[in-house]
Amino acid sequence: MVSAMLAARLSPSRVGAVVGRNVGALRSGPSYWLVLVSGFFEPVLYLLSIGVGVGALVGDLRLPGGRVVEYAVFVAPAMLAVSAMSGALAETTFNLFFKMRYAKTFEAVLATPVRPLEIAVGELVWAMVRGSLYTAAFLVVMVALGLTRVGWALAAFPATLLVGLAFGGAGMAVSTLMRGWQDFDLLSTGQFALFLFSGTFSPVGEYPPMVEVLVGLTPLYHAVELVRGLAIGELGWGLLGDVAYLLVMTVAGLAFAARRIHRTLCV
């Protein structure tokens, strides 16, 4: 129903034009490439230092289902989910805020037939393109290091897309509320807290019950659960719950962002 509603109001060519603008900006700026490449190395470095380095001290880990895996096998899918999150957020927070508030890019776009929702969707699609480059490269690293198999990697890839959509939508929504650059410090802190406490480095079952419930409400937890389940081949009905959570986050984020862009720029 939601997709039908979106399709009725969206023009693919206009959404494509918004994406095309970002492709053009990428091609004409050499510094942008550097930022893009650096985004790939961050999770890889975490994987090597914690997954492989700390993993040597931790040894093997028993999953809730009873299966025993190497620590790096446990951590790698979480880094994959984090990578999907970071890629999407990088594009939909700082860059979006700049385009909306400083460069007045959207103001110029809204004078054309393009609508706020089409801007939001176009920006999200572009964030997905960028995020997918990270996650695809990371999956190749995982397969190369023997941390997942090709089949499960292929299954995990669409899940990383969903993670990117969810965080991209939420990132856009949050960016439209930002009052200034200072507010981004809060966002970074929040992002780092999610990174540490979403079952990324240890199973949430190890946390105190209250904390476990709290973690269960946060988005990266669901992203990690979904991606990990697929990457290590531990399927369960719970994954559908994670998918639902991320879908709701995507739609709600998009709708909110489009509304805010309209409210802010069309007065």
Partner: peptide
Amino acid sequence: VCPQLDNLDPDL
């Protein structure tokens, strides 16, 4: 539309 303040795209 030519707005009061130029809003050309600085990235292009």
